[in-house]
Design a protein around this nucleic acid. Structure first.
Lengths: 191, 191
DNA sequence: CGCACCTATGCAACGAGTTGCAAGGTGAGC
DNA sequence: GCTCACCTTGCAACTCGTTGCATAGGTGCG
């Protein structure tokens, strides 16, 4: 329902072809959104049919032509209307939560290994975001308008990665603590 | 792809009918998952056809019969296999992120109002979770096994609500700071 | 030349998830 | 007795998103 609007935001920042949008969604906007190129192409086609964007065919040297999309007046109106609507609370789905909760019904040691790996992956992405922040936004206090917004969304990405890391750490610590207590108890029992 | 597994976890904790599962998903498991009753019925039917659960029809007084589902041996094997698989990093979609990023192309004041409301909603849910934690898990250090896992998933829910609150707060503060700076600048210019 | 790979766009089929609606029964209030 | 709400299950139609494949030219490598 909202990919249309995400595309309108991206195209408002800079008109682009379908593939260029796909690339951009893998980068900065991708902190909180991901879409395959097919999905993007399909939605772009619908938006064009609905008159939300205009298309200009740009010929390129040594490459196929590309179709560059720009928000129309109608598209800008649709975007503005969507932006003004209230935000419903999002519930999300997390396989991780289900696996944590179901750990008793499987191999907890295997799960623990995967959790260590997953935490490492999130740490890697976090440091990637931090590098990006240092390079692209060296002086956040000087930002305003769209650039300030972009930085703040990146801040959300950073915070989210930290959330995953902290949660997994709490889980691992809690189970380690439980095992330590069990070991002490059985030692005591042996005595 | 994973609703099957979430249902198997829930049914492992306690066998249930479709509607009972729907209720439970609105509560504790719902921190990180939500499903409509239709979705649950359809998946239960498929799991029954695949032999992952067995169904017992339970007659009730003054109510329609209910069909209570219990994981079969095959179902438990499927769940264990899924639990042992590596966890892919989840990317998620957030309308909030898109709206924050696109704020320049709409009415920022309206968005700000909605953000204040949204933050209040998350704060409400957070305190609800905190109450639940105090009541259901008064002594976390004493937990083990499935109960410890349940508490840790609730901890994730708490952390996630805090994430939303902190992020929105950072956004509002940053824009307030920018407005304050702008006001000072224009005052200076007037002098 | 043959082969692999890149750019750019797109189709077809499938699975997941939501919304709207309904059947068929019970209990509660008036 | 009638209406209304609720319980339990379920169908149908729709949107959203993914996966696999296709086309058609261009570049790079041995």
């Amino acid at each position: 329902m909202a990919l249309e609007h995400a595309l309108l935001v991206a195209l408002s920042e800079r008109p682009a072809s379908g593939l260029e949008l796909t690339r951009r969604f893998e980068k900065s906007l991708g902190f909180f959104w991901h879409a395959t190129h097919q999905q993007i192409y399909r939605v772009l086609a619908r938006m064009e049919a609905d008159g939300w964007v205009t298309v200009e065919v740009v010929e390129q040297e040594g490459r196929p032509d590309k179709r560059v999309h720009t928000p129309s007046e109608a598209g800008r109106a649709v975007l503005a209307e969507w932006l003004a609507a209230p935000l419903p609370m999002e519930t999300f789905r997390s396989d991780l939560a289900v696996k944590l909760r179901g750990a008793s019904y499987g191999d907890r040691a295997r799960l623990t290994e995967h959790l260590v790996d997953l935490r490492a992956d999130h740490a890697t992405r976090l440091s990637h975001y931090e590098k990006f922040e240092r390079e692209q936004f060296p002086e956040p206090a000087a930002l305003d308008g769209a650039a300030l917004d972009q930085w703040l969304v990146l801040r959300g990405g950073l915070r989210l990665e930290q959330f995953w890391i902290d949660w997994i750490t709490e889980y691992l610590d809690a189970h380690q603590g439980f095992e330590a207590r069990s070991a002490r108890t059985s030692t005591t029992e042996r005595d």
